[in-house]
């Protein structure tokens, strides 16, 4: 009768303890395997968007070369960076790292933070050029960041549908799903 508490309810504490242990274990496994953790993305250098866009007044298309002409926006590679950074422009450590990478001809691969699932058709040019949607609408305050965030708010279908309804454009499945 060791597991009977004072109220006479048998094993209640034990049941709660077992549940708590299982819950913590599940949460720990989920966290370790990345199930509940926001997906984090590493970048080769800590690119300062604000410095380029606000301080130096560079347009988005300087680095994202195809956002007005293709379905994809494009991420810069070493060739694009080297047009300005073959020699140091300032004194930042990250820039020094970039210049070194360019000099040593090491590959410079930025990782995409925003990715639509493979069953979605999305065209940057159509949204940016034709519909005149501003970058911030989906990418938030990205141009004001001083270092790349390791994760961003994931866009959901509700974001797309909300905007499509607002703009009075098609919300049929076949418009975007493929």
């Amino acid at each position: 009768m060791t597991n009977v508490d004072r109220d006479g309810a048998p094993d209640r504490r034990l049941a709660i303890a077992v549940f708590a242990v299982c819950f913590c274990a599940a949460a720990a496994i989920g966290f370790v395997t990345g199930e509940f953790r926001p997906q984090s993305v590493d970048q080769p250098i800590a690119f300062n968007h604000k410095k380029h866009v606000v301080d130096n007044q560079l347009g988005c298309s300087t680095c994202h070369t195809s956002y007005e002409s293709e379905t994809f926006a494009g991420l810069p590679d070493a060739d694009i960076c080297s047009t300005c950074h073959s020699e140091p422009q300032g004194k930042s450590a990250e820039e020094a790292k970039l210049v070194r990478m360019i000099k040593e001809q090491r590959p410079l691969v930025f990782n995409s933070l925003f990715r639509e699932p493979s069953h979605i058709f999305y065209s940057h040019r159509r949204h940016v050029v034709k519909a005149q949607i501003r970058c911030e609408r989906c990418h938030g305050n990205f141009a004001m960041t001083t270092s790349p965030p390791r994760s961003v708010r994931r866009l959901k279908m509700a974001d797309c549908i909300g905007c499509h309804e607002e703009q009075n454009v098609s919300v049929e499945c076949t418009t975007c799903h493929r």
Partner: peptide, 14 residues
């Protein structure tokens, strides 16, 4: 699965 306004019967796998 749905028929759109142009008559294509689509399938939404998601």
């Amino acid at each position: 699965t749905m028929i759109d306004h142009e008559g294509i019967v689509g399938q939404n796998y998601a």
